[in-house]
């Protein structure tokens, strides 16, 4: 039961790099092994211009689809955090997540939960990026909720033809090809 109103969100602003960005924050740790992959791409705005000052965070299951509890040294497992660069680019070096099941038995396709904060975003945008082709994610709960394949395609990372370990995913915040964002 809700007894208290949630604290409103405010923008992360442009000045967080020295405070929130970690050395190697783009290298995601796990207790076990897995196929190392890189998720990379660009964040662009409604005019197609690079978003050069976004805080890009990822949270994902391990290679076997398990929740990554705990951490190593001073880092939590399964969590990545970087800022975008001058070209709007980000890169997350991680493992290929396994698929996993929900409490109702539904199957979640291999995916990474993504949260983006930025100047001009009064609240974060959240979404999930799929690391499997469109025809392999049809039964995923979010894919079902979206329905429209054109919109769903905005959440599907594509394998780099020159390097199968690289998955490319560009995020358009607004306008043509705007990524699907979610409210949990």
């Amino acid at each position: 039961m809700t007894v208290a109103k949630p604290t409103p969100s405010q923008t992360v602003g442009p000045f967080f790099a020295r405070e929130l960005i970690w050395n190697d924050g783009g290298t995601v740790l796990f207790p076990g092994h897995g196929d190392r992959i890189t998720l990379k791409g660009r964040v662009v705005d409604g005019a197609g211009a690079p978003v050069v000052d976004a805080l890009f965070e990822t949270w994902q299951a391990d290679a076997s689809g398990k929740l990554p509890a705990g951490g190593e040294g001073t880092r939590p497992y399964g969590y990545g955090r970087v800022s975008t660069g001058a070209d709007g680019g980000y890169a997350i070096d991680t493992v290929m997540p396994g698929s996993f099941r929900g409490p109702g038995g539904e199957t979640y396709a291999p995916q990474i939960s993504v949260t983006i904060f930025a100047r001009g975003l009064l609240k974060a945008v959240q979404t999930r990026v799929f690391l499997a082709p469109l025809d392999a994610i049809k039964d995923d709960p979010l894919a079902r909720a979206i329905g429209n394949p054109e919109r769903l395609r905005t959440l599907v990372a594509t394998r780099d033809p020159g390097n199968p370990k690289i998955y490319r995913w560009d995020v358009r915040l607004r306008g043509d090809g705007e990524a699907v964002f979610i409210e949990l």
Binding site: G78, Y108, L121, R128, R174, E183
Partner: peptide
């Protein structure tokens, strides 16, 4: 130029999102 124009899709948190780092 940064605000999404489409409304967010409402979904239940995945088991992953119901936990955290």
């Amino acid at each position: 130029l940064r605000a999404p124009a489409q409304p967010p899709v409402r979904v239940a948190p995945s088991p992953l999102e119901a936990a955290g780092p």
